[in-house]
């Protein structure tokens, strides 16, 4: 057994007597640092190679999530429905939010389902790194797989709740038309935004332990600001007599933009003067947030790639 001797001799020669530093020895044999962060394009490629893991992980989490409750996967639909029912009573009936909004039930349901998708992704994303430390410390994979898997998990749930939403909207009296073909486009843009937001919040959540406690308040504020149960235009400009630009800024909020576009598609009487098209500003906002969040999210998350194991 001459190898261990040469090993120790080499280590002693290199590390102790200082003849050849270990870093030099590593360089001579072409050894690489174990925890170097890959360049960004390489990182994206590695992520693509892990697509099967990401998909399987998302599906597995979905299957196991409701396995202990009696109604199982039904809760994916029941939760937003119950929420919508509460808000309908609160804001529609008691506070009179439905006054100037035609087809208020469809208006409320659309806002609720679209917002829930983003809210759930952000909430799940915050835990995707901090809740999986044992996995991160045991196996090798691009860490962005985790927030990505969490977003895909929510996307799979959305497929079900979207079907329910369409049925409900038809029940409230809207008729399917060609514009409904645009629904996947809106959802795609929103998904891109959600992926980016999930990545950003995942990195924040990995270092800020208190974020999970704070997040419900942030998302609730976001919910109120996004006009889920009232029309921003109606409340801010017509009702409160604030200048138009305040309403415009509120529409630029990504959640409000996606909700707005979806309502324009689904509800005939929502903006009869526009046909089924949202204002250009909302369109631009939808595309901008999707592209910006996705690009920034990946870049921001990748910058801390090698630090996620530390907790």
């Amino acid at each position: 057994m001459s190898q261990p001797e040469s090993a120790v001799a080499d280590a002693q020669a290199g590390g102790r007597s200082g003849q050849e530093p270990l870093a030099k020895l590593a360089e001579r044999y072409g050894l690489r640092r174990a925890i170097a962060r890959p360049r960004f394009p390489v990182y994206v490629r590695q992520l693509w190679e892990r697509r099967h893991f990401i998909l399987t992980y998302a599906t597995s989490r979905n299957v196991s999530k409701y396995s202990s409750s009696a109604l199982g996967q039904l809760w994916q639909v029941l939760t937003p429905l119950l929420n919508a029912a509460i808000y309908f009573v609160m804001f529609g009936l008691i506070l009179g939010g439905s006054k100037n909004v035609p087809n208020y039930p469809a208006f409320l349901l659309t806002g609720m389902f679209v917002f829930t998708y983003t809210q759930r992704t952000v909430t799940a994303g915050a835990k995707s790194i901090s809740g999986n430390l044992s996995l991160i410390r045991a196996l090798h994979f691009p860490r962005a797989s985790l927030p990505l898997a969490y977003t895909i998990q929510e996307l799979q749930q959305l497929a079900i709740s979207m079907g329910v939403l369409l049925v409900l909207v038809v029940i409230t009296g809207e008729l399917p038309n060609w514009f409904w073909l645009l629904i996947p486009v809106v959802l795609l843009l929103q998904t891109l935004f959600n992926i980016g937001a999930g990545l950003v919040i995942a990195r924040l959540g990995s270092s800020m332990r208190d974020l999970n406690q704070l997040l419900p308040f942030i998302t609730r504020t976001w919910l109120y600001a996004s006009g889920v149960f009232f029309s921003i235009q109606d409340r801010v400009v017509t009702g409160a007599h604030w200048p138009q630009w305040v309403a415009n800024v509120m529409y630029l909020n990504p959640a409000a933009s996606y909700i707005e576009w979806m309502r324009d598609i689904l509800i005939e009487s929502y903006h009869p003067e526009n046909g089924h098209n949202p204002p250009t500003m909302v369109l631009v906002s939808c595309v901008f947030w999707a592209v910006f969040a996705l690009g920034f999210g990946f870049w921001y998350f990748w910058r801390a790639e090698e630090r996620y194991g530390r907790g």
């Binding site: 270990l22 870093a23 590593a26 072409g30 640092r33 174990a34 925890i35 996995l135 196996l139 090798h140």
Partner: peptide, 25 residues
Amino acid sequence: AGLLPPHAGAVYTDGQPSLLGVNAA
């Protein structure tokens, strides 16, 4: 295995060392 970032110093490896253990997944 490259799963914990070093505070100081470095680990150089040839190829990707892997931990035998998949329990966490």
